[in-house]
Design a binder for these strands. Structure first.
Lengths: 229, 229
DNA sequence: GCGCGCTGATCTGCATGCAAAATGCAGCGT
DNA sequence: ACGCTGCATTTTGCATGCAGATCAGCGCGC
């Protein structure tokens, strides 16, 4: 199910995304023991890329080393999604504050470009459009963090935002949600361009709290049909 | 200079700490190109642990992949230390808020134990005492984050707090600073025990801002005698 | 004289081999 | 019947080998 769509990816990335995906979709259950050999067999790769992927997943908290030679899938609390949104709120509100002070014209132009692309895909006509929206959204947020000109934040983001995909949000946005999200993005750009850090931070906070609320509402109703890609 | 003190460490950790140390002390200069072969020669290890260390250092932002086969030491902005303290403030204030709600009796007992050990070493009589203080301090903060019961936060912390050691702060604390820091710690424990999230967060904020101010003051005066160990 | 393509050297990504450490199971002793 | 010790197996950590990609310097053409 995840084999053919991204054609160009080196073995380590394949291993990383493959294992992570298997954890998120539940193919690898919480607490299950992992061995490099089995994973390398399952994914058709050698142990080296598997090792590197496992190392990263341990750093990110998806996998835990118990003692010596025992490695297990981590156990996730039920408030995982809420946690991710809270942490993103901390990091991204701060980032956008800095971005409002430090963003260059190029940064702002890039944001506008991404925003335009997202508008063109709203409402999304097919699955591919959803895919593009999700990726553009990530790119948008990543661009803001990059505009904050802090290598530390960027490094944190590659951990935290990747994690945020735990809940592949965009595929469950209603059109109303999507439009609101787009409006937030537009307002964020305006606030950055106006060099108004507090304005930008407030919008970002609303943006992420809205996202969190949507996920929370969804988790309350449905609990079964996840794991769609 | 970093070879004999920690006797038990596997090759990957050795590589990680070795390279990171060489970057922090300036032995590897900003922008310098790195090759696995040279590093493995320098550190007397094979390429495999070097590769894994490089991978982690890239995630943490110490090293950058330029294009294809070119890997360089990252370039650090001058406000690096300030950045680290700001990010820690975001993450740790939030952590201690959660800790104030979720900490167990064991967590609080552990904090008290660490605190007592730090008091016993204050004022520090020798270099070893400084070392112990630094480590106990890290352990204290890590314990608080762990008490927040959020794997995400913990994962973030292993990136962000490790980074914070960029500035090996404790060796430049005056006795007054040390006492204030200890008082903060004591107050943090009390606030957590009293289940007072906002109180705890405020103290943590003060604690880290005080630390940041100290570093800032130091960077303003001295700029030469760093790189001690 | 200067730019461009080409070739050799270098470097990374990945696979595999090997030794040491850990696991777990069976047989022994109590 | 139960716990413990010892051994076979498994698993990781690290080293090394190899192929493809990249880089750097040279010669050729303009």
């Amino acid at each position: 199910m995840q084999n053919s769509s991204p054609p160009k990816m080196n073995a380590t990335e394949q291993a990383y995304h493959g294992i992570r995906n298997d954890i998120l979709t539940g193919r690898l259950k919480e607490g299950e023991r992992l061995t490099e050999t089995r994973l390398s067999d399952d994914l058709g790769l050698s142990r080296t890329p598997i090792r590197e992927a496992i190392g990263r997943l341990i750093l990110e908290g998806f996998i835990e080393r118990q003692s010596g030679y025992t490695t297990r899938v981590a156990h996730f609390p039920e408030d995982e999604a809420e946690q991710v949104y809270e942490i993103r709120r901390l990091v991204e509100c701060y980032s956008v504050q800095r971005a409002a002070r430090l963003a260059t014209e190029e940064d702002i132009a890039a944001l506008r470009r991404i925003h335009a692309a997202m508008q063109a895909d709203t409402p999304p006509r097919d699955q591919a459009a959803y895919q593009r929206l999700t990726e553009a959204n990530e790119e948008f947020h990543r661009t803001i963090v990059a505009a904050a000109r802090s290598p530390r934040l960027t490094a944190l983001m590659t951990t935290a935002l990747d994690v945020s995909m735990v809940v592949r949000t965009y595929s469950m946005f209603s059109e109303k949600d999507l439009r609101r999200s787009l409006n937030h993005h537009a307002e964020l750009i305006d606030a950055i361009e106006a060099r108004a850090p507090d304005w930008a931070a407030s919008v970002m906070s609303a943006h992420l709290l809205a996202g969190a609320a949507r996920v929370a509402a969804r988790l309350k109703t449905a609990g079964s049909d996840d794991g769609q890609d």
